[in-house]
Design a protein around this nucleic acid. Structure first.
Length: 505
RNA sequence: GGCUCCGUAGCUCAACGGCAGAGCAGUUGACUCUUAAUCAAUUGGUUACAGGUUCAAAUCCUGUCGGAGUCACCA
């Protein structure tokens, strides 16, 4: 049974009074002829005539009320904006006090009347009749600023608590217009990415989220169970292996935008489910993917913000191609003073790091690739503020990427870095089934200490590859992270409508 | 998971061993052009939860729950 607080009890009482007056507080249908924006625009146009006559029926939520005995004002807010209502006893008679007494902030109403301009100059609907559309029982968080006696203005942010804002995103959206704007822009971002790929002849596809075997990344999966099949299933950790199966099927350019699930830590840049974009491009290599990537992201930035240059915290980020290209060996050499090409084994590399940076050493049991990744994260990554393609990665941490001809330790892979963190990951895809099988086996050996993290060997994927897979370039990007950068939000929770939270109570 | 900080009225916050407060919101009344309306009066609390120390606990201690930050983890 719901327990109501004192404010809610008062509103429930009003709800009963409304019913007693014969007013249905939740009528089935609403009517409107104009949005707030349309009504104002139409009125401003009509004002050029001597006698503007714009009749309108508006619908929206009451956001402020200034009630009086014989005249009241209110603002309602709809999807397009806010508009003021003017209610006068002359037209409404006893309905005015009915409005003053029984209507509350947060109620949805429908109001009909004629547009006019108040003495203070605001385009306003002179209300001839109104109707309740939905009673609000729980008050929305108050939003108002107050000037104190000493003259200082205290802004009472309507809803500021990050936990409440995330848990009750509906209330956050209802009272914080800038939050609505953030999510409109996020939608625009996804639209722009989709439009860009569509225009480049990529086919949008949907592959299984619920999979008998997970793969395509090194991450712990969520596990579930299908009752009728009596079989464990996994929520996907990447789209990669399914999308590449489609290349075997002669679909030359495919992409998917959807949700990945990784059963790992939560942080300002990690949510257990996140939106991923992956595409695979037959007959292309990672250099061509690089070019397409910088074009795509620049296009998206422009569509979302109107410019290829955006502000992220203290940084001005310029997305206009071409982006900086930095070979990983060179980047790590400059950032840490260690040349990974000279250290061809894990043992040698560990010694070199320990000699140079005794306070910053990786796990001595790590593979060479993991140590290189450590150097990258520790020394190089924080310095990559402007969009940068870091390319040529160690083979042993890239089991799905193709080796550089003549270099057994390195693969054709790049990651895009912006504002000091990883945005995307791409490579010339491995299409040799025998090499791929070998890599799976190697991964299994490297990860034996941690069962959940090892790359499971996907027999069906190898079978698909044996039919023949065209050479291709593949790409993956965290859409939430791009949204963070474009919208200048420093936590992934700010760009997710409903971020993962522990359950209440 | 480790460490640090936080949880007080519907919302935003004070009080930091000595009577639990303010602004907004709410309630009652006044006001026929208000607009972050104004004026007068007024309601609202198991201080997240459980235990302990103390003459006295929102305040100090322990535990639990939830959150934030950070580290670890995360190609």
């Amino acid at each position: 049974m719901t327990e109501y607080n004192s404010l809610e009890k008062i509103r429930l009482q009003k709800l009963e009074e409304l019913r007693a007056e014969g007013v249905e507080p939740y009528p089935t249908r609403a009517k409107r002829t104009h949005t707030s924006k349309q009504a104002i625009a139409e009125f401003e146009l009509a004002e050029k005539d001597a006698t503007p006559e714009v009749q309108a029926t508006l619908a929206g939520r009451i956001r402020s009320m200034r009630t009086g005995g014989k005249v009241s004002f209110a603002h309602i807010e709809d999807g397009a904006g806010k508009i003021q209502l003017f209610l006068r006893i002359n037209e409404l008679n006893e309905k005015l006090s009915f409005f003053n007494k029984l209507f509350d902030l947060g109620d949805f109403i429908e109001a009909s009347g004629v547009m006019f301009r108040t003495k203070s100059g605001e385009a306003t609907l002179h209300v001839y009749d109104f109707k309740l559309l939905a009673k609000s029982v729980t008050p929305l968080p108050a939003d108002k600023d107050v000037t104190l006696d000493d003259g200082t203005v205290v802004r009472h942010a309507s809803l500021d608590n990050p936990e409440l804002r995330a848990r009750q995103r509906y209330a956050d959206l209802a009272v914080n217009p800038e939050v609505r704007e953030t999510f409109r822009k996020r939608a625009k971002l996804v639209q722009a990415l989709r439009a860009f790929l569509d225009n480049h002849d990529f086919l949008e596809v949907e592959t299984p989220i619920l999979q008998p075997l997970y793969g395509g990344a090194a991450a712990r999966p969520f596990t579930t169970h299908h009752n009728e099949l009596d079989q464990d299933m996994y929520l996907r950790i990447s789209f990669e292996l399914y999308l590449k199966r489609l290349l075997v099927g002669n679909l030359e350019r495919v992409y998917e935008i959807g949700r990945d699930f990784r059963n790992e830590g939560v942080s300002f840049k990690h949510n257990p489910e996140f939106t991923q974009l992956e595409f695979y491009w037959a007959y292309a290599d990672y250099l061509q993917v690089m070019e397409l990537t910088e074009q795509m992201v620049a296009y998206a930035a422009e569509q979302v913000t109107g410019s290829t240059q955006v502000t992220f915290g203290e940084h001005q980020i310029e997305f206009k191609p071409p982006w900086r290209r930095l070979e990983m060996r060179q980047g790590i050499l400059e950032a840490s003073g260690i040349d990974i090409a000279e250290q061809t084994t894990a043992e040698a590399l560990f010694k070199a790091i320990k000699a140079k940076h005794p306070n910053k050493t990786p796990d001595p049991a790590a593979t060479r690739g993991k140590m290189i990744d450590f150097l990258l994260g520790e020394f190089l990554e924080p310095t990559l503020i402007q969009p940068t393609f870091l390319y040529n990665y160690p083979r042993d941490i890239s089991p799905l990427a193709k080796s550089i001809p003549g270099d057994a330790l390195t693969v054709e892979r790049f990651e895009g870095y912006i504002a000091g963190f990883e945005l995307c990951n791409a490579f010339t895809e491995l299409n040799d089934p025998l090499d791929q099988e070998q890599r799976f086996i190697e991964m299994g050996r490297d990860y034996t200490n941690d069962d959940e993290e090892k790359h499971p060997l996907d027999e069906d994927y190898l079978r698909a590859m044996r039919y023949g897979m065209p050479p291709n370039g593949g790409f993956g990007m965290g859409v939430d992270r791009l949204a963070m950068i474009l919208l200048n939000k420093h936590s992934i929770r700010e760009v997710l409508l409903f971020p993962a939270l522990r359950k209440e109570e």
